[in-house]
Amino acid sequence: MTVEKAARKLGPARRSLWIYHFNASGCNGCDIEFAAALTSRYDIERFGAKLVPSPRHADVLVVTGAVNSLTRDSLRMIYDQMPEPKVVIALGTCACSGGVFDGCYNVAGGVDKVIPVDIYVPGCPPKPDAIVEALARIRGVKERKAVCEVKRGGRGKD
């Protein structure tokens, strides 16, 4: 029920989720799937989500990849720059737990070793559907409706 807790924390902000995306030493697999969620087939702008360039504008921090000793301080700083209320989504197995890199000499582990994480979206990489589902549940849209919309989008004129 962590998603519902995150939605309660956001309050009115859950109706307009501005997302800042940070890659903490990921392999870009999750980033590509996340970018796909923004494009025409999945289109998370339906929920009012949009990608913002500055962490000070953001409500949601999406982190991909395991945290290593180089990105640890940057991640902490980005998190501190975001105004309350804020939600952190760990996207992909590496961000959730460190994945295959857990235990390396330079890897701190999952994102939750550095900042508090509200929602874990595992997968290597997670499907865009999983990202859509997480955002739809924060937004309060019924999951079935969100998935239906995805299917209709996929049947487009292309």
Partner: peptide
């Protein structure tokens, strides 16, 4: 802009 990019744009608000 969403229509130009074949997206739907804001829908549920």
């Amino acid at each position: 802009v969403a229509r130009v990019q074949r997206r739907i744009g804001p829908l549920y608000a």
